[in-house]
């Protein structure tokens, strides 16, 4: 049976991870390569790097991080952040990324989804949607860019459907209302999008405990759960999350304690 995936996300700036992790056996705790390897060793089903570097020069460090990670980390690797065009796409894939997530650039250049999926296949195109509650929108959720700072006047559900039609193979759905709260994922939003698109939906934003992961799968139908900070501070591990999921009847891939 297909496992529900648990994805560990790392924020990377200028080639270094921004938020700390508590892996005691790392030589360099700020090195995304070592962290990714550690996460994959302890059972993360995928690794996601989010590049938050501001300039292109700084972003080049990311290519090095990806290629080094891909040498030793044999699980799927998604990279997002600052992807503007097909050249960025190609550079990331050639560095060793398996999937590329696009967000703002898809909003400002909607053709990018179709172009990239035609060129590289829809299995590697992840449409990242940062949704914020807005009652004026037909679905109740508006698409935002730049980490939630810029409104777009685009309806999140319509955008998700259009993205899939244009070739996105997966949707990474972040609720900007729950992101960072550690009070749980946005179940209503996740359910709405997941029930209305044919591709897998990754729930993101708000995970504070293993129970939150269980809820978003059982109550909102998420295909995968993504979390960043909950794994970084050693309160919860990939193992404890998978154990809780498994005890609640969700099939997960075995991992080490």
């Amino acid at each position: 049976m297909l496992s529900t995936r648990v994805i560990a996300c790392l924020d990377v700036q200028n080639g270094r991870t921004v938020k700390g992790t508590n892996f005691i056996n790392l030589r360099d705790a700020g090195d995304p390569v070592e962290q990714a390897k550690q996460y994959s060793t302890i059972g993360a089903d995928e690794i996601c790097f989010l590049d938050i570097s501001a300039t292109y020069e700084k972003r080049r460090a990311m290519f090095n991080v990806i290629s080094k990670t891909a040498e030793t980390c044999f699980v799927p690797l998604t990279v997002g952040g600052g992807v503007k065009d097909l050249n960025d796409f190609r550079d990331l894939l050639n560095s060793g990324a398996d999937k590329v997530s696009i967000n703002s650039s898809a909003v400002y250049n909607p053709k990018l989804i179709k172009q990239s999926s035609d060129k590289f296949g829809n299995q590697c195109v992840v449409l990242a949607i940062d949704a914020v509650e807005n009652i004026k929108m037909p679905s109740g959720y508006e698409v935002t860019t730049h980490g939630g700072r810029k409104k777009t006047n685009i309806d999140s559900l319509k955008w998700a459907k259009q993205g899939v039609k244009n070739g996105a193979g997966e949707i990474l759905l972040t609720s900007m209302n729950t992101d960072g709260t550690k009070k749980g994922y946005n179940l209503k939003l996740t359910k709405l999008i997941s029930q209305n698109v044919s591709v897998p939906v990754i729930a993101s934003g708000g995970a504070g405990s293993p129970k939150d992961m269980v809820d978003v799968v059982l109550k909102a139908g998420a295909s995968a759960v993504l979390a960043a900070s909950i794994f970084h501070y050693d309160i919860h591990t990939i193992y404890s999350v998978k154990k809780e999921m498994s005890e609640n009847g969700i099939i997960v891939r075995d991992c080490e304690n």
């Binding site: 044919s198 059982l218 139908g221 295909s223």
Partner: peptide, 17 residues
């Protein structure tokens, strides 16, 4: 629907036995 009542998503994406 799958064992949790979810739609079968296409692509078949993830870890399987």
């Amino acid at each position: 629907l799958d064992y949790l009542g979810r739609d079968y998503k296409i692509p078949h994406m993830g870890w399987n036995n």
